[in-house]
Write a protein that binds this DNA or RNA. Structure first.
Lengths: 193, 193
DNA sequence: CGCAACACTTGCAGGCCGTGCAAGCTTTAC
DNA sequence: GTAAAGCTTGCACGGCCTGCAAGTGTTGCG
């Protein structure tokens, strides 16, 4: 059975999704300046005030849900063998996560289209939680064997994230499979630039 | 002598700087929520409307001027030998530019302090012009010899930028010289992770 | 069932950001 | 000295976002 709490969570998630869809549809069909909170709320059949019970900002509704949450990433890293080199752990973990994209590729399409028309959307949204993501991973990587110092850890993290995002972006533009591009990117990093 | 246009430009730059200083001082002394456009304008002795003749947004006044402009970076890359490997060009250019930081370290201090208290400031400001910066460099790197494809170029750029920013951040936190950390970071990338 | 606790939605009021416009003022050009 | 060009400012307005309190549904329990 479904507990009342689960029920509430599910309905909430559904409504959040519905609002998002309305927002993106307006932004794509009528231009981003037409996607005001008022217009989105009307389309989603809620009051403008309620919109902010679901999203902390208008922008949040116009970008896709982040693919990775910090806690999840930390769990996955912790699940790797403790003596595995940090670089290989990052490689394995980001590969697992990136592959998940293939399953939701269809859902991502409108967001990708919108982002390509308005790059500032992705930039701002990304910066906010991506730096936090990298900071948390940085803390994990620091304590791995073979990591000689803080700058080493920083470079490992920033290069791995960069490779992952590059592969995803390139895959979106060229249509090549994410896995192949990801392997190519990490192989370059492994063998040296 | 000074042409009238130069004179105007200079006065404008001075005023911009003065407004910035007022903004950062308020944000540091009284908290960031006290740094409203109204308060900043009053402190800088201009009208709130005029504030927006100098800055497109309030945030712009609270972060430091970007260290690198795209055109400048492209010029510097173009000045490198055309047959130099892309990685070495990036290494040399970012090193030159990063060293410039040592000359303006003092001016940067308030901004660094403010950014450390409010990370979202740096995140948003950075994302906006940093992605544009990387896109332009990407185009240059793509046409360098030895760059085998788009993903190769992407990884080169994102890793180099990541290394540079890591070195700068680490230097700010640890006090070690930027050059040393930069060398260490690029050496890691060169030999492979 | 009935009632109390809880969660969700909404309106209202208000602060803040950012922009177009037009009026005034200062500097520059001839 | 006068016209053109640039800068500053006030005004009005639209849009984002928040706290608060009132209203409406939902849940849990006797």
């Amino acid at each position: 059975m479904e507990s009342p709490q689960q029920r509430r969570d599910r309905r909430r998630a559904e409504k959040r999704r519905a609002i998002r869809m309305a927002a993106v549809r307006i932004a794509l069909d009528e231009g981003i300046e037409a996607a005001t909170v008022e217009a989105i709320s009307a389309a989603a059949d809620i009051s403008p005030r309620t919109f902010f019970n679901y999203f902390a900002s208008k922008e949040e509704a116009l970008v896709m849900e982040p693919l990775w949450r910090p806690e999840e990433l930390i769990d996955l890293l912790a699940a790797r063998p403790a003596d595995e080199p940090a670089f290989q752990s990052l490689r394995a973990v980001t590969r697992d996560l990136a592959v998940r994209i293939n399953g939701i590729w269809g859902d991502m399409k409108p967001f990708i289209e919108l982002r390509s028309r308005h790059p500032e959307l992705a930039a701002k949204a990304r910066a906010a939680d991506e730096t936090k993501l990298m900071d948390t991973v940085f803390e994990v990587v620091r304590s791995r064997p073979g990591v000689t110092g803080r700058i080493h850890a920083r470079v490992l993290v920033v290069a791995s994230f960069g490779a992952t995002i590059s592969a995803i972006q390139e895959s979106q533009e060229s249509g090549e499979p994410v896995e192949r591009l990801l392997d190519e990117a990490f192989a370059l990093l492994e063998k040296g630039l």
